[in-house]
Amino acid sequence: MKLQHHLGGIENLGPVSLETRVFVEPWEQRIFGIHTAMMAESAHLADALPAYAVKDLPTAFKSNWSWASLRTGAEDMQPFEYFKYRYYEKWLGGISQFFIDAGYLTAQELEEKSAFYRAHPDAALPDRPSAPIAAQIGAYLQQGDSGYHPPERAPRFAAGDMVRVADPAAVDHTRLPGYLRCKTGTVDAIYPGHFSYFVSTGVDGIGRPMPVYRIAFKAADVWGSDKSEPNTTIYADLYEAYVQAAH
């Protein structure tokens, strides 16, 4: 992940926020709702587990949208812009740019709508989802979208194996925490089945379904003994593409 999107081990970035509320402002709930509705209508759900009849939904939204889409939008932000905005403001920026890039509306139309609601904050909002779409959103919230697949082969590593984390080429989006690159740990568990991701990360290595491991790292091996509490273990779930033999 790029610097601004995984800050583990980076010093001098200011105080850590201790806010525990999921939504601090009411408008943040609406941003989360927009994202959830987009995921529930995403075209990729036709091939997901469980399969959804998204092709029959009365919606103009025909694109793929997932957590990967949201994260990629945030990771594409210019770093100084990223630090300037709050959490759900980043979501809004990524979602807005997606709709523009996908051709659902133009930047001018978005600006006109924004100006209208700034000038008329009490104006009526667009209609709520139709009954079929509301039912689809409810089903998605209850059943989710699994990347699980039946195993196609045996995992390369077994519990107890000493492994080393890979250092793949940097790409637009990765599931490998930057602070674990080239670190050595021990396979703690292997999750049953194989798992895919919402998008392919190209040379980063995530594509076809593969095993996922829970790997244990000694904190001192990650941060250094002078910056770690004694007897501390860090656990990370990693796709097999990111795992190599230690020797």
Results as ranks from 00 to 15, higher is better:
V187D: 06
I190A: 15
L180Q: 07
I137T: 12
D122C: 07
A124K: 14
G193R: 06
R153G: 13
T186A: 07
G205F: 00
K183R: 14
S146K: 03
Q136L: 03
S200E: 09
D188Q: 13
F198R: 07
R153W: 07
V171I: 04
G185N: 04
A166E: 03
F116K: 00
Q136Y: 03
P129L: 10
Q142A: 14
L141C: 08
Y148E: 01
Y191T: 15
G144K: 11
G205C: 07
I206T: 01
P168V: 14
D167Q: 10
H120T: 13
S130F: 11
G193H: 11
L125G: 11
T201V: 05
F116W: 09
A131L: 13
Y148T: 00
R181Y: 02
S200R: 11
G185E: 05
H149A: 12
P150Q: 15
I137K: 05
A119H: 04
P151C: 07
Q136D: 01
A158Y: 08
A135F: 08
T174W: 00
A124E: 11
P126A: 15
I133C: 04
V199Y: 09
I206P: 00
V171W: 04
G138Y: 05
R153V: 08
H194I: 00
A169E: 14
L141P: 01
P151W: 06
G138R: 07
L176N: 00
R175Y: 14
R156E: 12
R181T: 02
Q142I: 03
A139I: 00
D122Q: 14
H120V: 06
V165I: 15
G202F: 04
P177R: 02
G185M: 01
A170M: 14
P132Q: 12
C182K: 15
S200D: 12
V163C: 05
P192V: 07
P192Y: 06
A119K: 15
A170L: 12
P126R: 09
S200G: 09
G205D: 02
A119C: 05
G138A: 12
H149C: 11
A169M: 12
A115W: 10
Q143N: 06
F157T: 02
Q136H: 13
P151M: 01
I137E: 03
K183N: 01
R153K: 14
G193D: 04
P129I: 06
R118C: 13
R164V: 02
S130I: 08
A115D: 15
A134K: 12
A123L: 02
S196F: 09
Y140F: 14
A154S: 09
G202H: 05
L125R: 10
D188M: 05
L180T: 03
T201F: 01
H173M: 10
Y148I: 03
D122N: 13
D122G: 12
D161Q: 13
D204T: 05
A158C: 09
P177D: 09
R175E: 05
I137R: 07
Y140L: 06
V165G: 00
D172R: 10
H173I: 07
L180F: 05
V165N: 02
A154D: 10
Y197M: 15
F195K: 02
P150L: 10
S196E: 14
D167K: 08
I190D: 11
A135Q: 13
Y197P: 00
A131F: 07
I137V: 15
Y179S: 06
A189L: 06
